[in-house]
Amino acid sequence: MTLSWKTGGILLGMVFLAAVLLVKPIGVSTQFVIADGIIADAISPSFITETEEGYTSTNAYMAKSNGKYAKNASNPLNYSFVFVIAMMAGAAISSFLRGGVKGGEKTMPNIWRENFGDSALKRFAVSFAGGFIIVFGARLAGGCTSGHMMSGLMQTSISGYMFTLGAFGAGIPIAMMLYKKSEG
């Protein structure tokens, strides 16, 4: 059901290549900021404002790089945001076609259950906290696994190596400590 690493690796590589060939390197985590911008601007319309030169925001991060993020949050029908929506749709269709995620796996992966028990509340709380630290970290880093690790390493970016060193440097020892039980 899961592709062999050879087939999967070549297909994944082709997607990253196609992105650079046709548009620009793949990245995902910026779109969490854009989504926040859309929400904030819907609640408080003065959050993003149009100026003579483009867009700006009352938030310094949204306004940086000449209002690039403010502009994208004002116009969600842009390449990077639609890309992420399409990615989710692609994953949903692929998953549906192979039978979907079933039963208890929907609430938490079995490997979590084996190591930490059956409490949905516990898994949900940890997933929430994990999402917080991951996206905060990705924004601090200026990219995530797709933007820094995959797109960065393929372009021989120094930042890609720095990010990868950090992500695996923390990830490997922590996962080894936490996930001692697994069916192999």
Binding site: V28, S29, F32, V84, M87, P109, I111, W112, V126, S127, A129, G130, G131, F132, I133, I134, V135, F136, G137, A138, R139, L140, A141, G142, G143, C144, T145, S146, H148, S159, M162, F163, T164, L165, G166, A167, F168, G169, A170, G171, I172, I174, A175, L178
Partner: peptide, 21 residues
């Protein structure tokens, strides 16, 4: 910050099994 952010993402990744994408 790229390295520090990488450490943070790696921490959450190792706990949840998810990264942004």
């Amino acid at each position: 910050g790229v390295f520090i952010g990488g450490l943070m993402l790696g921490t959450g990744w190792a706990v949840t099994g998810y990264c942004p994408g």
